[in-house]
Design a protein around this nucleic acid. Structure first.
Length: 415
RNA sequence: GCGAUCGUAGCUCAGUUGGUUAGAGCGCCGGUUUGUGGUACCGGAGGUCGCGGGUUCGAACCCCGUCGAUCGCCCCA
């Protein structure tokens, strides 16, 4: 047994987590399911660096919010370059697309997953190092890319067994639509500025679209009669959105229109979406105030901010920990076989048996420590199909509830 | 960055208005019992009560600070 850590044992960094046990199993289930479904949709696997030059994120995210100045893990390396631990996948993928000449593969369907870093106050479902799965279609201007991407997300959530979650869908229109809408919103809210919450008065200057999802009571009345994006959509933008929605209907993806759903960053165009737990659902209570399960949108404006040619793209990301909170307790996997050594002289025999069983593709665990008498009881407490107990004088016993257990074939001399 | 609640054994927690050697259950280790068996009983290890300072004759308990956790606000790529 290890001793209690002394006072000098370093603590884990705030907002990081050591995932173990049932949580780790749920985490792995999310990743494995993602990998399986991603292959069904023929998304190609990509591995990305965990850090990039700071400008990769600074230029793509822009200066509109606190993100760049306050919420990234940015540091100087020994060469004096400013680097940042990735706070998202999209910007790095865009950079890779440009620097590697992946235009030649366009339209390119990519999937990846891994750790993400954001310097934020930890709370329920929110960590400083957390993990995302991510899917992008780069170099595809057509609405069917949005449909395919969303069908992937929808099927993934279904296969994870996550219920009570609905796709909330909106369009931000093309660049001109978006700007006209934004200007109208600013005008609308400026007229009632004094009656808005303090937070929203500030948002009016920094990020007016965000007033639309204010939780403050004082703002709600003005949000309700705020101008809608639909009034500002160009014919093309309207047609694009209709193509997306009719495609989703055809693909059997359920959705609901959320005309207040926005993206804060300027590079977003057209489709914006979030899968959100239904009010009062089990999923909603499990997630607390961190409600979005999976979110994304079309980012046709991103490549240009990184100095590339205009390149249409659409993608989504989802927090693995949050998904894992919703998949429920996976049943602990049981070993096909447990070998109990109740007489230490038979330990070598046990080693041979273990190896043989495992080579035949069965999982097996050995129990050969502690009091001889209590070893069998210990084995009974672990999930298993079959227990073989090696006792004194070359005797043995086999215990199982199911005489069809496949592993019995692999241990015939004992069974 | 702001606010609230919390921090006692590996885990879940108790600890009475501040008062002797800080407790329970589970888990762990050992023994006895049982003997094809997740039994029962006995015993044991394991805590400077998150950390630092203060008040007091005396602090797990009161005060300040700090670190961490949890929940919410801000932010949400």
């Amino acid at each position: 047994m290890s001793k209690t850590p002394s006072r000098s044992t370093p603590q884990a960094i705030r907002g990081t987590q050591d995932i173990f046990g049932a949580d780790a199993e749920a985490f792995a289930f999310v990743v494995e399911t993602f990998e399986r479904v991603r292959k069904l949709y023929r998304f190609r696997r990509v591995e990305m660096p965990v850090f990039e030059k700071t400008e990769v994120f600074a230029r793509s995210i822009g200066e509109t919010t606190d993100i760049v100045s306050k919420e990234m893990y940015t540091f100087e390396d020994r060469g004096g370059d400013s680097l940042t631990l990735r706070p998202e996948f999209t910007a790095g993928i865009a950079r890779a697309f440009l620097t590697n000449g992946w235009q030649q593969h366009a339209p390119l369907k990519l999937a990846t997953h891994g750790p993400i870093f954001r310097y934020e106050r930890p709370q329920k479902g929110r960590y400083r190092q957390f993990h995302q799965i991510d899917a992008e279609i780069v170099g595809a201007a057509e609405p069917q890319a949005d449909v395919e991407l969303l069908a992937f997300a929808d099927q993934l959530l279904k296969e994870l067994g996550i219920a009570g979650v609905t796709l909330h869908l909106n369009t931000l229109g093309d660049g001109d639509s978006r700007e006209a809408w934004r200007a109208a919103l600013v005008e609308h809210f400026r007229a009632v500025r004094g009656e808005l919450s303090e937070d929203s008065q500030e948002r009016l200057e920094k990020n007016p679209l965000r007033i639309l999802d204010s939780k403050d009571r004082r703002d709600r009345a003005f949000v309700a009669d705020a101008p809608k994006i639909d009034q500002f959509l160009s014919d093309d933008a309207r047609a694009f959105f209709e193509a997306v929605t009719s495609g989703l209907d055809a693909a059997g993806v359920k959705w609901t229109r959320a005309d207040g759903l926005v993206r804060g960053l300027d590079y977003y165009r057209h489709t914006a979406f979030e899968f959100i737990p239904d009010e009062g659902s089990e999923a909603a209570s499990k997630l607390g105030s961190q409600s979005t399960v999976l979110g994304g949108g079309r980012y046709d404006g991103l490549m240009e901010s990184l100095g590339g040619a205009p390149t249409p793209a659409v993608g989504w990301a989802a927090g693995i920990e949050r998904l894992a909170m919703l998949v429920g307790e996976p049943t602990e996997s049981s070993s096909d076989l447990i070998v109990v050594v109740e007489d230490d002289t038979r330990l070598t025999e046990a080693f041979g048996l273990m190896r043989s069983v495992r080579e035949q593709g069965f999982s097996a665990e050995l129990i050969a420590e502690g009091s001889n008498r209590k070893r069998f009881d210990k084995a009974k407490k672990k999930p298993h199909d079959v227990i073989v107990s090696l006792q004194q004088n070359m005797g043995h016993s086999v215990s199982h509830e199911n005489s069809d257990a496949p592993v019995l074939q692999a241990i015939k001399p004992y069974a």
